[in-house]
């Protein structure tokens, strides 16, 4: 749980325990009061009436929402599949020895990380058609997400590559490997393992980005909920349902990634030197077992 934080406190003595008990009771009371206030607010406006929620038990509604979930997942998966390799490429360009290429890579990252996604979307919606470039709605959304996230992935991967000790690539080249062999066989595998938590955090963010389909009228989960809510006049309940679905998807994603990470580590433990396992474990523990919200490399 909260390691480090728990050492902040001495083991509480009798007086401390009493204080904690009092604080527990008081805070529980306050929480109960807040919950009651919310529930009363909802009932006086008829939000807890069964009619408001009945539509969500009917199959057509559920199917409609599942369609939104599917679209959200589709955008996420396609965008990831393009943005991750593209990001890796940009990271390699930024680390290359050619000065012009380095500058170009840097410019790409700085600009596309600094453009808000919504502005990029508006560019696809209003700007590019003026230049004769029109994309289908799905690609307007996905390409905007890709352009933005590739820059972030590039920074994460670059940080990972730089974090691999110099000795590794030096050893590789002293064994006669070329630059690319050393990169591909020695440096990148270690770099990726170091930044897995950051990559997971970014993919959760990418999934959340897909909610901007709301703006381009692509029927992903949020836009689908808007349509549903306005059709049945249950705006608040529908958005709440969408919110719960987002939480479920994202927590599943984080858990799954965590599982994958652990399996990867076990693979390392079986095959490699014990020291490298400890290193990888440290990287994993650094994430606190969860996806870090924002990695330090993105500034």
């Amino acid at each position: 749980m909260n390691t480090g934080a728990s050492t902040l406190f001495d083991l509480p003595g009798p007086a401390g325990r009493r204080r904690i008990r009092i604080a527990t009771v008081v805070s529980l009371l306050l929480i109960v009061v807040a919950v009651v206030a919310v529930v009363r607010r909802l009932t006086t406006h008829g939000m807890l009436a069964a009619d408001e929620w009945r539509v969500f038990t009917q199959w057509p509604t559920i199917r409609f929402l599942l369609g939104g979930v599917w679209a959200t997942v589709l955008v996420t998966v396609v965008a990831m599949a393009i943005a991750l390799p593209a990001g890796a490429l940009v990271a390699l360009v930024r680390l290359s020895r050619a000065r012009v290429a380095r500058a170009l890579g840097r410019a790409y990252v700085e600009v596309f990380r600094a453009i808000p996604l919504l502005l990029l979307l508006y560019m696809f919606l209003f700007g590019l058609p003026r230049l004769g470039l029109t994309f289908p709605v799905f690609w307007q959304l996905t390409l905007a997400i890709v352009l933005n996230n590739a820059a972030v992935f590039a920074e994460i991967l670059r940080a990972g590559i730089l974090a691999v000790e110099r000795g590794q690539s030096e050893a590789a080249s002293s064994l006669g490997m070329t630059y690319w062999q050393a990169m591909w066989l020695v440096v990148i595998p270690q770099a990726v393992r170091k930044v897995v938590p950051a990559l997971v955090g970014q993919s959760v963010r990418l999934l959340k980005d897909s909610s901007l389909g709301y703006v381009v009228s692509y029927l992903e989960l949020l836009h689908q909920s808007q349509v549903l809510g306005e059709y049945y006049h249950t705006v608040l309940p529908t958005y709440l349902v969408a919110a719960v679905v987002y939480i479920a998807i994202n927590i599943t994603l984080s858990r799954f990634a965590h599982l994958l990470e652990n399996r990867g580590l076990r693979g390392v433990r079986r095959r490699r030197h014990p020291e490298s396992t400890a290193l990888a474990e440290n990287a994993a523990i650094g994430s606190g077992g969860r996806a870090p919200l924002i990695d330090d490399s993105t500034v």
Partner: peptide
Amino acid sequence: AVFRNIPLLVWLVLFVFGLPEIG
């Protein structure tokens, strides 16, 4: 857990279009 896993845009539409429904 709740605030981090829901997209900001969902919060915004919830606040702007949802809350008026409960006054």
